[in-house]
Design a protein around this nucleic acid. Sequence first.
RNA 1: GCCCCCAUCGUCUAGUGGCCCAGGACGGGGCCCUCUCAAGGCCCAAACAGCGGUUCGAGUCCGCUUGGGGGCACCA
Length: 487
Amino acid sequence: MRFAPSPTGRMHLGSARTALYDYLLARRTGGTFILRIEDTDTKRTVPGSERELMAGLRWLGLDYDEGPDVGGSCGPYRQSERREIYQSHAWELVEKGAAFPCFCAAERLEKVRQERQKQKLNTGYDGFCRNLDPDEARRRAVNGERHVIRFMSPRAGVTNAVDLLRGPIVVPNEMIDDYVLLKSDGLPTYHLAAMVDDHLMGISHVIRGAEWLSTFPLHALIVRAFGWEEPVWMHLSVFLKPSGKGKMSKRDTALAMDSGYSIYIGDLEKLGYIPEGVLNWIALMGWGVSEDDVMTLAQMVERFDISHLNPAPAAINFSKLDHFSGTHIRLLPDEEIARRIKPYFIHAGLEVDNDTLLKIIPLIRERLVTLDDCLPFAAWFFKGTVEPKPEELIAKNLTAAQCAEIARKSYDILASLPEITLAQAEPAMRALVETLGLSAGQIFGILRVAITGQTVSPPLFESMEIVGKEKVLERVRGAMGMLEKMR
RNA sequence: GCCCCCAUCGUCUAGUGGCCCAGGACGGGGCCCUCUCAAGGCCCAAACAGCGGUUCGAGUCCGCUUGGGGGCACCA
């Protein structure tokens, strides 16, 4: 199996899913997972994207057995480093009568295309160089005349190619153009390079995007012209925008970004999603399991079954990403969550001590959807002081004066306790709720804002236990003062 | 315009001719739990695109229509 992206942009959901399925199939069958970089279009190659690709795979945990950076027995793994291989194979096809050198100028081709478009004919190559004398053509090519090598597509009959997910795909050969195999710069097009490499690298299953479906018969023809055995081919559908109408556009991507989502793997990492959740999410877009759809990578390997892949296009559903992310975070042990969220606190400029960090995990673990959600919930634990908004200290249906009184009474109770723990503080405070005839929400709410500085926080008494008596009293006193001033 | 592909709840899907008055998950609604926010538990609404065939029997097979998607480069 191989994952063969071109380094022309950022790594997105679609490529990640293809890579995942390649990985799953390889691990499931004991095969080899190869990373091959398809960088034959020097104009479109964007620097850094190869690195992002590798980083993305590493982050997702999709380790490849062979690739440009890890080596392997059938390298090189960058197509730009395999020039000669393609050239000799292109000429091999010429030799076999399945391809021909073409000397047509781009300008002439463009003119022909326009004319044929006007006549509403299909816009393929007009066959100008198809019937050149082979020896003569070879001589011109060897003499350095600018040329390409085109595939000599059959003029009659049909080609039948089998896609595992869709069955046989039959196309009349007249619809298959004389595609360029080798460009005039000596580099191959995808059609040649991918077929040659897949064969040379012993690829048994080709998983790729549906955008290749229309050139699929061509590819089958090329493989057959070489006399090679065809791999098993499957074409994965594209992802549609969340509405299900059309594919993701630049605008949709920006829109997703505004709501805290992204289709780029690198962004997902920055947004605090965990790889296990992302993986689970994309795995299920196009692969149906009947139940227990929460799976780790290892479990996916166990259950992966290509006969359950779906050929229909799938709409992206970001709320499901949230669900899987949160679910997978909750699957992690406390120590692991601590390890993963620590960088977010540090990045926020906070000083983190590991003891406290570990203690707060049980309080926030089921509240995290993304890892950086730890900040709104728990950043206050690591701050020396908090700044409650005065108006938030006033509980529902109560006046500032009443709240000040409650704060004072709470202070007295808490101060009288030997230490502030869940076991000691909660019963004492509940007793106060009882005697005042108010709701727990009102009184606990005042304390919550006083101690945490926010209206939403982890459970109150557990939090108090962690910050300690001294700080609790100090902050309640502070709140009392603020409330006094407002009466 | 031409070629190709696809079609089950809003979304991802289970379903491989009788086990389906269609199952699960996300999202939505309700109830319970509850110190906020979550998490959790229980419940509800929600689909076989349409029309023709084949068959004793069709979501499942075939055809057409409609809708959606992909491709038509010396890009991948």
